[in-house]
């Protein structure tokens, strides 16, 4: 009871001074990386992103960061906050970090473009490598299916968790193997590879295996679990990779999976009157 009334009473002008140490790297001005310190009057409810925005607006306009949605859905604002990769826009300064000093660094294992802006090219390239889309032997079905592909709710649950990835790249920053081995595919791409490979509508397991099953492939995951700990969306990449290992082994020993069939178009049905037609397609095929 008091909880609800309290939140109405919260004084949003009351502030708490928190020290922010931000990693700085400006290749055109000062190629030597260093830390800048700012004291920010943080209001209860502020996220780290709010504080960094405050710094840029009021204290030092040269501080660079990347953010877009401010609600944990675009995956732009991942940075290392107090020793762990997190989304700045989803990290509460007062109630979550609970420290007087907040240290912000760019994500590890990526080249730094400027300040806390990492160059996510490795993430994107690896993601593209695993072909993260439905593949079919029959290209006609892949490109322009003439109906739905069957999938039961249970089959959906098999991969649904792994489809919540927002490509923030936090998992690659956490992974010890990615840190040492750039060629390692990394948790994000492996998870997406699994997500599509166990999708019943997909038929590309063999093709993806070429990218998974080599000397820098899936077998270099040793279940350190740091990726799952870092993932801000609960995707649990480490889990997906272990399931993937089991699946690959099972298929190597002869497990066969038939991809889902196209649903047959219902014949002999009459369209009820008064139902409006879908608008014209804007993209011609």
């Amino acid at each position: 009871m008091s909880g609800t009334t309290d939140s109405y009473k919260t004084n949003f002008t009351e502030t708490k001074d928190i020290v922010f140490k931000i990693f700085r790297y400006e290749p055109d001005v000062n190629p030597k990386p260093h830390f800048d310190t700012f004291t920010v009057p943080v209001v209860k409810g502020w996220t780290v992103l709010d504080a960094v925005m405050y710094i840029k607006e009021n204290l030092d306009s040269t501080v660079s960061y990347r953010a877009s949605c401010r609600m944990g859905i675009c995956g732009s604002c991942a940075m290392e906050i107090n020793g762990k990769p997190r989304l700045a826009c989803q990290t509460q300064v007062i109630s979550e970090l609970r420290s007087k000093e907040v240290v912000i660094k760019p994500l590890a294992n990526y080249p730094v473009l400027r300040d806390v802006v990492p160059d996510l090219t490795p993430l994107i390239e690896k993601h593209a490598d695993v072909r993260p889309y439905i593949l079919r032997k029959d290209k006609k079905v892949e490109v322009n299916p003439k109906g739905e592909l069957y999938q039961t709710p249970d089959q959906l649950e098999e991969y649904l968790q792994f489809s919540y990835c927002i490509k923030c790249g936090a998992c690659l920053a956490a992974c010890p193997v990615t840190g040492a081995d750039v060629k390692f595919i990394g948790p994000q791409a492996l998870t997406q590879s699994y997500r599509y490979s166990v999708d019943t509508r997909d038929d590309g397991f063999k093709l993806r295996l070429e990218v998974m099953d080599h000397s820098h492939g899936v077998w270099h995951c040793h279940f350190a679990g740091a990726c799952s700990e870092a993932c801000p969306k609960g995707v649990d990449p480490a889990f997906a990779i272990q399931l993937f290992k089991r699946e690959i082994t099972a298929r190597k020993f002869g497990k066969e999976v038939e991809p889902a069939r196209l649903a047959r178009q219902p014949a002999d049905v009459k369209r009820r009157e008064n139902i409006p037609y879908a608008p014209e397609k804007t993209v011609k095929q």
Partner: peptide, 14 residues
């Protein structure tokens, strides 16, 4: 900014 092999020993608060 890669942690490299040093990152095996310490990489953050995991």
């Amino acid at each position: 900014h890669r942690l490299g092999i040093g990152g095996w020993a310490y990489g953050g608060r995991y």
